[in-house]
Amino acid sequence: MPGRELDSILEGRRSQPHQLIEVLQDVQENFGYLPEDAIRAVSRALGVPLTEVYGVASFYKAFSLKPRGKNVITICTGTACHVRGARLLLNQATGQLGVAPGEMTEDGMFTIEHVNCLGACALGPVVTENGSCHHHMAPGKLRKLITSLNGKGEATHA
């Protein structure tokens, strides 16, 4: 656990319980998820009981308690996207990568998530890939997107 990054996040915010969500957001941004050690450290530093930190971390969908892949693919399954075939996209992604939603592929490259609405219903079905938004998705387009991301990952690995 790299303690220095955590120290810089907690700098100037120790013993301030009201900063809890901001600190957790920064930890999530830094590590990609909320590691157990980090949650314990945050609880100690802010003076918030561990149960409460864990309760907050498990309550919000924006926080992940499990490690996430390098590429996070978020598929919108809200009403508008559902009507336009989000189920097909989810099937395509889970089938191609062989993991259930919310889990990481074995090589640590991908995580598939589904959310209930991204607020871009007119552009549906919507898929976001590491924060950038792809509109009017189709299973074919999603397959190409995943393949290209996979290719990029392997290129940088080699």
């Binding site: 561990l50 149960t51 864990y54 309550f59």
Partner: peptide, 25 residues
Amino acid sequence: AKAIGFVGRGKDRKVDTPFSQPSEA
């Protein structure tokens, strides 16, 4: 003591200790 608390949200809400391990508290 705050050893147990509500974990999760909506239909997945349950009473649990942090990380589902016996709590030191």
